[in-house]
Structures are given as structure tokens and as C-alpha cells.
Simulated scan of single mutants.
Amino acid sequence: MSEEDRRRWGTALNGQGVANHVNMRMSDGSVVSVSADGCVSEARRTLYGSLEDAMTSTALAGNLPIEAKQRAAADPAMKALNATWSACMKDKGHPNLPRPEDARVLAAEAPRDEALTIAVADAECEDRSGYAPKRTTLEDRYFTAALTFYEPEVAALTETHRKALARAKKLLSTPTP
């Protein structure tokens, strides 16, 4: 595609520039902005009834799990679990790794043999500490709390998605001229 064709494609898809955007303040105080023009916004309006409903739906569905994971990560029990795992990794010759995610990043960047050594140590330390089930239990507690706290928003989201799905099914079953 030529540069001009790419530009026209981008404009058709997402609208032109930032002049015609819809901004919306979410329940957590953040502001979400989306172009009011282009095919994507037209599809959102068609499925959700409005850009605002589409934005609210997308923001809540995307941010709720992130918020729950962040709160779980700050919990003293998670910090203690990570400290236990980290001490085990240090004993196996891999210091300065506070969390399993850090070991995975290090392994991904390491030569194959070193990556395997890190992966084996990680697996042994996770097994020894019971890391996975403990982390899952702790995170589940925060996911449940978030769903309870945002219950009205989640119910509205569910209804919005139900209506969008019904609209999509109707559109897809209608023969095109």
C-alpha cells in the first residue's frame, strides 16, 4: 500500500485527527477518549447504541481485572509469598528476582541454557512454596471483591453486551442488497 493509501485507510478506520473526539469520565475518575469518526466508531454506535456505552463497556471490562491484580499485588500476603519464592531463587543462584514474572522476563532474554536453568529453578521454587494455588486464591479474593464493589456497573455491562450481541446477530442475519 502506498503512503497515501495507508493514510486514507487510517482515516477511514479511525477518523481524522483529534478534532472530533468523545471524552468520557469513568467511575474511577479516569478519562477515556475515542474518535467519533471512522468505521470503528460507526460500528461501535451500531452495536452498542452510542459511543459512550461502548466506551464504558470497554473501559470497565479492561480495567476491572487490572485493578484487582494491582490490589492483590499490594497485599502483604502476596508480598510474603513473593519474598519466599525470591529467597528460594536466590538460594538456587538467581538473586534479585522479586517475582516469578521477573524470572520469566530474564529467561526470555537469556541464552537457551541459562533460560532453562532459570525456568527449572522457577518451577522448583513455585512448587516448594505452593506459589500458584496461593496466588490464585489471593487474586480470586480481589477479583470477587472488585465484582462485588462494581456490581451495578457489571450488571449494566452485561446488559449492554447482551443488547450489542442481539444487534450483531440481527445485522449478520440480514441479507445485504
Rank of each mutant, 00 (worst) to 15 (best):
residue 7 R to V: 01
residue 80 A to C: 00
residue 174 T to G: 05
residue 153 E to Y: 06
residue 132 A to D: 14
residue 3 E to W: 08
residue 142 Y to D: 07
residue 85 W to E: 07
residue 78 M to V: 15
residue 42 E to V: 02
residue 151 E to N: 11
residue 151 E to R: 11
residue 70 Q to G: 15
residue 143 F to K: 04
residue 1 M to I: 09
residue 72 A to H: 14
residue 103 A to N: 11
residue 96 N to P: 00
residue 158 T to H: 09
residue 107 A to R: 01
residue 135 R to A: 14
residue 168 A to T: 03
residue 6 R to P: 03
residue 172 L to N: 11
residue 79 K to S: 08
residue 41 S to N: 11
residue 106 L to W: 03
residue 170 K to L: 10
residue 74 A to M: 08
residue 68 A to M: 03
residue 12 A to V: 01
residue 62 G to H: 02
residue 153 E to C: 01
residue 95 P to L: 07
residue 76 P to A: 05
residue 15 G to P: 07
residue 121 A to T: 00
residue 116 L to K: 12
residue 164 A to F: 04
residue 29 G to W: 06
residue 36 A to L: 02
residue 106 L to N: 00
residue 140 D to K: 07
residue 14 N to V: 02
residue 46 T to S: 13
residue 50 S to K: 08
residue 74 A to I: 05
residue 60 L to H: 06
residue 165 L to N: 11
residue 56 T to N: 06
residue 20 N to P: 01
residue 169 K to R: 10
residue 70 Q to N: 13
residue 80 A to L: 12
residue 131 Y to P: 00
residue 49 G to F: 02
residue 132 A to C: 01
residue 53 D to Y: 02
residue 64 L to E: 12
residue 37 D to F: 04
residue 92 K to G: 02
residue 33 S to P: 04
residue 35 S to E: 06
residue 130 G to W: 04
residue 129 S to C: 07
residue 97 L to A: 02
residue 177 P to M: 12
residue 121 A to D: 00
residue 77 A to T: 13
residue 165 L to Y: 10
residue 109 E to N: 13
residue 145 A to L: 14
residue 77 A to I: 05
residue 135 R to Q: 08
residue 162 R to T: 14
residue 127 D to Q: 15
residue 85 W to T: 04
residue 7 R to E: 10
residue 56 T to A: 08
residue 127 D to K: 15
residue 52 E to C: 01
residue 59 A to M: 09
residue 140 D to N: 15
residue 97 L to H: 00
residue 118 I to Q: 02
residue 177 P to H: 08
residue 81 L to P: 03
residue 31 V to L: 11
residue 90 K to C: 02
residue 89 M to L: 09
residue 121 A to E: 02
residue 102 D to V: 10
residue 105 V to K: 13
residue 177 P to Y: 13
residue 167 R to I: 07
residue 103 A to W: 00
residue 144 T to D: 09
residue 12 A to L: 12
residue 29 G to I: 07
residue 37 D to Q: 14
residue 155 A to V: 10
residue 7 R to W: 00
residue 37 D to G: 12
residue 111 P to G: 03
residue 142 Y to P: 00
residue 135 R to E: 11
residue 21 H to P: 02
